[in-house]
Write a protein that binds this DNA or RNA. Structure first.
Length: 102
DNA sequence: GTAATGACAAGAC
DNA sequence: TGTCTTGCCATTA
């Protein structure tokens, strides 16, 4: 227990993250919209930073709108590559082909 | 109550 | 995609 965010937010966000199909990535904005909070993209990031504490969630499939990975999660790239997600650049995912298509 | 912070988004160039 | 600016929102001090 490091920082208690709204349990509602955490549950909703992690619930969506858990639905991201393997080999795909979703943007914070996408998730924010799915939880009915289109402007809470930043909150999503905060919750995700603690996601590992609340449970086992594929937070590595969540990237920002530019396809960049989390600054505190360097291993994220490796995990994505292992799932088939390609990187156009060392720091950017190929969003065009691997963004979660709903 | 106010200010600062953050794994961001969207628009403009 | 990259960088800069503005906007949003919840948490923390």
């Amino acid at each position: 227990m490091v920082a208690k965010l709204s349990k509602d937010l955490i549950y909703e966000i992690l619930s969506v993250v858990d639905e991201i199909p393997k080999g795909k990535v979703a943007s914070y904005g996408q998730i924010a919209k799915l939880i009915d909070r289109p402007k809470n993209a930043r909150l999503v990031g905060k919750v995700l930073s603690q996601a590992s504490y609340y449970g086992d969630y594929p937070c590595h499939r969540v990237v920002n709108h530019a396809g960049r990975l989390a600054p505190t999660f360097p291993n994220q790239k490796d995990l994505l590559l292992d799932e088939g997600v390609e990187f156009k650049k060392p720091t950017h995912v190929d969003m065009k082909n691997f963004q979660w298509d709903m």
